[in-house]
């Protein structure tokens, strides 16, 4: 349990990065979920393959939005794990520096 892997700086970095990641990726997931037009460019669409009709295209886009919103939330979840780990490390570092 009491393993100290990261130093104080790295764990602080991890904390800040994961807080930022959680906030931004969750929001991006929400925006993908509500199909924000600004994010259309980044959708995983197969170039020149399907969507000969408008309906097929719209369907592909909707699937893409769905997929991306889930991916964003997965990444956000991974950052929650990072947050927990780096938070634990940060706490360990702080405690050890106090006890010294």
């Amino acid at each position: 349990m009491a393993c100290k892997i990261c130093g104080p700086k790295l764990s602080l970095c991890g904390l800040i990065l994961s807080v930022w990641g959680i906030i931004q990726l969750t929001l991006m997931g929400v925006f993908y979920y509500i199909e924000a037009v600004a994010l259309l460019e980044d959708l995983p669409l197969e170039e020149e393959s399907g969507h000969h009709t408008v309906d097929a295209f719209i369907h592909a886009v909707e699937v893409g939005y769905q997929r991306n919103s889930y991916n964003c939330w997965i990444a956000a979840l991974l950052y929650v794990i990072t947050l927990v780990i780096s938070g634990h490390q940060f706490w360990m570092n702080n405690r050890s520096s106090v006890s010294m």
Partner: peptide, 12 residues
Amino acid sequence: LRDPTYVGGIKL
């Protein structure tokens, strides 16, 4: 972001 599978989450 441009990954059609769920591996995209880790890539992201």
